[in-house]
Design a protein around this nucleic acid. Structure first.
Length: 260
DNA sequence: ATGACTAAACCTTTTAGA
């Protein structure tokens, strides 16, 4: 089974690239972030034509998430955003998928807040959101031991995830406060699937559009797939696919693919 | 240089992303 996550930075712009990528990478589940579409505009028909069902939760201009699943894969118990945490923004979509081999897997697709700058109102919102997510996930893991949470976390784990850890020390995505929250998620009983395997240095999932950052390997690893302990031993790979970042008009993020 | 690029909307300028 393969599950993937991709921040597409506007599904309106990136739909052809998502369809092409799925044709070449027919994953069972694809979580999308930053669709930037109201629900009436979601291109469910285009995905149906290539054999995918979709669950979506969006809003105008910003944010917006979706879960695409192969049509043969049963999907149930869809939840939008974080139960118990009031949020005006469309950031999370969750569903249970029934895999023939693995059984029921709870899949969370999430677009974590950016946070803008330490000390800002948006940073405070990011911290509150992370606490809300953790409180909910703790309960969710009790009822769904096989759980995957994937998406754009907007947080690096440590210096290995940062192209210039000295220059970017303490800046957004790299603060100790954010990393503490990320470790607190891990402490619930989750594992960073990417770090279960060796990877070359400068393996990133996001590169700034400016300054030829992709060409210069000046990126961050901020898109993550966390798997619960019950799934950890069955993970056989977790790779970032940088090929779509080489497209014309690419998203600034690359997809991350989990094989389980 | 509170910059660079991209996307969306209140669209020739601002907001947000990361």
């Amino acid at each position: 089974m393969q599950l993937a996550t991709w921040n597409v930075n506007s599904l309106n712009v990136r739909l052809p690239q998502v369809l092409d990528w799925l044709a070449a990478n027919p994953v069972d589940v694809l979580a999308l972030q930053e669709t930037k579409l109201t629900d009436d505009k979601f291109p469910a028909d285009a995905f149906a034509q290539i054999g995918y069902n979709a669950q979506w939760f969006g809003q105008k201009t910003y944010n917006g998430v979706a879960l695409l699943t192969k049509a043969a894969l049963p999907v149930s118990d869809v939840v939008k955003n974080i139960p118990g945490f009031t949020d005006d923004l469309a950031r999370v979509i969750t569903a249970t998928v029934a895999d023939e081999k693995l059984g029921n897997i709870r899949v969370v697709g999430a677009y974590f807040p950016n946070g803008q700058e330490p000390g800002s109102e948006k940073f405070d919102y990011k911290m509150n959101w992370l606490k809300g997510l953790r409180d909910w996930l703790k309960v969710e893991l009790q009822t769904h031991p096989k759980l995957v949470i994937m998406g754009d976390y907007n947080i690096t784990f440590d210096d290995l995830d940062v192209w210039d850890p000295v220059a970017l020390e303490g800046t957004i995505h790299c603060t100790e406060e954010e990393r503490y929250q990320l470790r607190a998620l891990i402490a619930l009983g989750l594992n960073d699937a990417h770090r279960l395997f060796p990877h070359p240095p400068k393996t990133f999932s996001w590169w700034d559009y400016r300054n030829m950052a992709f060409r210069k390997k000046q990126g961050l690893r901020i898109d993550h797939i966390l798997v619960s302990h019950a799934l950890k031993e069955q993970v056989s790979a977790c790779e970032i696919d940088i090929t779509p970042r080489k497209n014309e008009r690419p998203s600034d993020h690359a997809p991350v693919v989990l094989t389980i």
